[in-house]
Each structure stands twice: as C-alpha cells, then as structure tokens.
C-alpha cells in the first residue's frame, strides 16, 4: 500500500511526507522493496536481472551493485532458474539496496539465507540505519527483530494493535519452561511465583513441570533452586506468544 500496489479501502498514507497514491513514483524512487514472495525472470542471469531493474530505476551505480553482491556472496553469472531460493533472495536484497534508498521495505528478508550471509545482512542493515536510512522489516523471527529493530509494530487483521520499543517488548515475552525433577513436585509450589502464568505437572510420578512465564524469569528460576532439577529446557519465545500477551493485556487494560 505504501508503494501504491494495493489501494486502501479508506484513508491515505504519507511516506516520507508524500501521499502514497498521488506521489507514487517519487516514493518508489526513494524506496527499495523486497517482496515476501520474490519472483524473478527465470531465463535471465543474476546480473541481467539487476541490470534490468537498475535501468528501470535509473541512477544506480553498478559499482555499488557489484560491492553488494560480493558482500552477500551472490553469484551473478548464473541463471535465476539455477539459483536456490536463498540466492534469489540475495538478488532481491541487492535490488532493494542498490539505489541507496531512503526507505527500505523488506518482507522476511533472511528466509533461506545461510547464517554467514544473514550476519552480513544484519551488518548491512546497521550501516544503512547509521547512514540515516529507514528500514521497515517484517519478520516472524523474534531474535532477528531483537537484533535489528528499534521499534516493533504489531498488525492483526490489517489493524495496527501495538507499537513498542524492542526493549519493552522482550520484557513482556512469554516463555515456556519444562523442568524434570528428581522427585514428584507439587504444582502449587509455583502458583504464586511472580511472572508465572500457567503451571502444569505430568510425566511419570508427576516429575515433569511445565511453566509459562511472562517477562523476566528470575523469580521462577530461583524457586526451581529449592528442588533437585535433572533437566531444563526453555523454548525460545516466538512472536506469536508475544503477540498473544499483547492481545490479552490489551483486553485487560480495556477492562
């Protein structure tokens, strides 16, 4: 919608101070876009693809394209149809970055990228941020969001339901902890611990405890210290869970 590919049912959007519908071309000239589902021309090579897109856009320094492709370790001589999805993604990233746009709109930029390239990509994001460029990044991977973003917006069914600093967000993260004890454990022991929102016990002889903890896990961990712990697994909180807390918290506030 910001690039005027789809139209709002009502209202309007301002991008970099310009109306998204009336000044579409100006906005597009100032932004780089990586679609979530990237489609390229299978018969072109990587460098042909980028040349075409650069020609359409104009004002792209080919040296910059070459530098980007080297940093992301992208082979430009192969045909797109012979590339893996990660390598296609790299072409998409280069096309988004190549014009040094003021605004980058990246949809799931790291899906399919290997860890080394991911790392390089994060470095690239840091650089453009330091250069004053804005990055809109959509992602389902919380560590990625934590790593690169300053602020996070939650969108549910087309509605913006929350806009938060990342630091505030992780404080509210929900995490599931599974603990196996040496002996049976009374679930009531964890009922009043700060942050613990759900407790359940199962496994043989009731030795396995499942805790759902919101926010800091400090109190729950200290409480665990009172028992003999054999094993402990903590599942990484994902955005879905954080999203759920936002949702329920919102309800609470409203009430």
């Amino acid at each position: 919608m910001l690039l005027d590919l789809i139209r709002p049912t009502s209202g309007r959007a301002l991008v970099l101070g310009r109306d998204s519908h009336r000044d579409t071309l100006a906005i597009q000239a100032l932004s780089g876009y990586l679609p979530g589902e990237l489609s390229l021309y299978p018969t072109l090579t990587g460098s042909e693809t980028l040349r075409y897109l650069a020609n359409l856009r104009g004002g792209v320094e080919w040296e910059h394209v070459r530098a980007l492709s080297e940093r992301l370790d992208c082979d430009l001589t192969k045909k797109v149809s012979d590339l893996s999805s990660g390598n296609k993604r790299k072409l998409g990233l280069i096309s988004a970055f190549m014009a040094r746009p003021e605004l980058l709109i990246l949809d799931e930029p790291t899906s399919g990228l290997d860890p080394l390239v991911q790392h390089e990509f994060y470095a690239l994001i840091d650089e453009v941020r330091d250069a004053g460029q804005t990055v809109f990044l959509s992602s389902h991977v919380l560590p990625e969001v934590q790593r690169v973003c300053d602020r996070v917006a939650f969108i549910r069914e087309g509605e913006l339901i929350a806009l938060e600093d990342v630091s505030g967000l992780t404080g509210r993260a929900v995490r599931e902890i599974e603990v196996v004890f040496a002996e049976a454990i009374p679930p009531a022991a964890f009922a009043g611990v700060p942050g613990v929102t759900q407790v359940s016990v199962d496994g043989k002889n009731a030795t396995t405890l499942r805790l759902t903890v919101t926010g800091p896990v400090d109190a729950a961990i200290k409480k665990l210290g009172e028992f003999r712990v054999l094993d402990l697994t903590s599942r990484l909180p994902d955005l879905e869970d954080v999203f759920m807390t936002f949702y329920t918290d919102g309800g609470d506030h409203a009430a």
């Binding site: 597009q28 679609p35 489609s39 096309s95």
Partner: peptide, 13 residues
C-alpha cells in the same frame, strides 16, 4: 508470474 510488483516497485509506473 509475480514479476509485476517488482517492475512497479522499480519506478515504472
């Protein structure tokens, strides 16, 4: 083929 949005995002209009 999914390439239209790419063209339009590159200031084709």
């Amino acid at each position: 083929d999914g390439t239209l949005s790419l063209l339009l995002a590159h200031t084709v209009g």
